[in-house]
Design a protein around this nucleic acid. Structure first.
Lengths: 95, 95
DNA sequence: CACTTATTTCCATATATGTGGAAGTACAAA
DNA sequence: TTTGTACTTCCACATATATGGAAATAAGTG
């Protein structure tokens, strides 16, 4: 059997409404965004967003940069390119 | 908020070791395969494979063709092309 | 019609996941 | 050093998911 661990981890990370929306927002705005900003934007509890961001980070889909009290999140394009080529672009279309 | 329902459904369907392996097998062999054959090949109970195949089918990732007592499964390339472009090809690489 | 073969459905169960409030940690500013 | 802001961790809980055995369904064969 193949080792799918990192691939399945990535797919699990993306297979959730909230996290997919986070990815979409980060891709669409194409800028760093803080946990609280995402929380406000989506109307979901801070602790929940923090949990989702950890899931995305641990799957290698985002990077986090400290800036004072905030953590600024960006997408790791390389990971998408390697395991999900064309996926981010496909998010741009309606359905 | 966007409607991610079909996309999330597809991602959930792929976000499992067993189902990803099924997809990999179907893509690698590039032929129709029956439930029992997959079950034998993977050493997983028939009922479990049947459940996974339903999940894949309901996500639009496979088609089923009746042939006597068997149901022959193939991948729906169009769905992959639309929502996961390049994904099947990326499965061909090691990690 | 029995009988075999292939698959699905039903059921119980164990495990994983998503959620938010409360408490904890980190850091900056007054 | 007290206060405020941003984020994470802890906790409890509800829901979802994966699993296989057993029973049910469907379809070919003698």
């Amino acid at each position: 059997m193949h080792d799918n661990s990192s691939r399945v981890k990535i797919l699990k990370a993306l297979a959730d409404d909230a996290r997919l929306e986070i990815v979409r927002i980060l891709h669409a705005t194409h800028r760093e965004m803080a946990c609280g900003e995402i929380s406000d934007l989506m109307g979901i509890a801070n602790s929940t967003i923090s949990y989702h961001l950890r899931t995305l980070r641990e799957a290698g889909l985002t990077t986090t940069r400290k800036d004072a009290q905030s953590r600024l999140i960006t997408l790791r394009e390389e990971t998408f390119t390697k395991y999900m080529p064309g996926f981010l672009e496909s998010l741009e279309m309606e359905d």
